[in-house]
Design a binder for these strands. Structure first.
Lengths: 142, 142
DNA sequence: TCTTGCAGCTCTAGTTGCTAGAGCAATTAG
DNA sequence: CTAATTGCTCTAGCAACTAGAGCTGCAAGA
């Protein structure tokens, strides 16, 4: 049985984050020591490792909650979990293409270089004049 | 002189967002009509367009605040603005490479397909077992 | 003129995924 | 036995908005 600090070290999830996950119901309330300190077993550690890995892959906590509830019921079909992963893949792809377009524009801005005073600064001018920018931007900057 | 709704339509920034920008000091307090409604002129509209464009490029509001204060003083050298843009470009590059790595792992997960029940679901298994994943993940999922 | 209905106002609270701090109790190392 | 570390609860804060309540302003049609 590990106290929270050891669990944190073992999984790489910070202590307040573990307590936060418990608070929002991603982790079950663990047993306590005589002195009221949380004690975790193997299954909680695995569950937390699962959460951590999914977070690293960019899954939002709500998706992780759904994946956990699926895996809590092993008779469920796999398709739901697969769908969640596919949505996440699509989201990542969308963010990559957004960012690639942004990079192109930033590179154009920076390539002009820093010459004189602000009054003829390409960076400021480019940002101020949307017409100088060839493409149109979607709503979210990713 | 435009009321806030027209300014919103003209710039593509939502009405509550405009008020929020005023509240945090990115936009000056505009003049008001006899009935206490905000009225905006050309310069505020340009300033807001600048903010919007920079937000679309992913600049955080603090960087935008700095760019605005630079452009408010046209005798400042351009290098500072250039540095901000370069930092932003680096941040975007970092996020792209993070996301590209994540995409590879998600693609591997999804490529296994949805076969039977959760009990032999590749997605769940991959997330649960970090050892199955060849690379190590940095802290932030981007 | 009246009235209807949209637009605007202020204020508070919620979102996501944590992080930081206060002020205390428990445990552990020396 | 004491000091350092770890743990506890609780509240508040971060970015960058978004949503809602409950009110007022204003323009246009009947």
């Amino acid at each position: 049985m590990l106290p929270i600090g050891k669990l944190s070290a073992a999984t790489g999830v910070k202590v307040p984050t573990i307590r936060y996950y418990e608070q929002i119901g991603l982790l079950p309330e663990p047993g306590r020591s005589a002195g009221n300190q949380r004690l975790y077993g193997k299954s909680e550690q695995e569950r937390l490792a699962f959460i951590r890995h999914a977070r690293e892959l960019g899954f939002p906590l709500e998706a992780i909650r759904e994946l956990l509830s699926l895996s809590d019921d092993p008779s469920q079909p796999c398709a739901a979990a697969d769908g969640i992963a596919k949505r996440q893949l699509q989201a990542v792809n969308a963010r990559i293409s957004r960012l690639t377009a942004l990079r192109a524009e930033l590179q154009r801005m920076v390539a002009q270089g820093a010459h004189g005073a602000i009054s003829d600064c390409r960076v400021i001018e480019t940002l101020g004049n949307h017409a100088l920018c060839s493409h149109d931007h979607p709503a979210d900057a990713g």
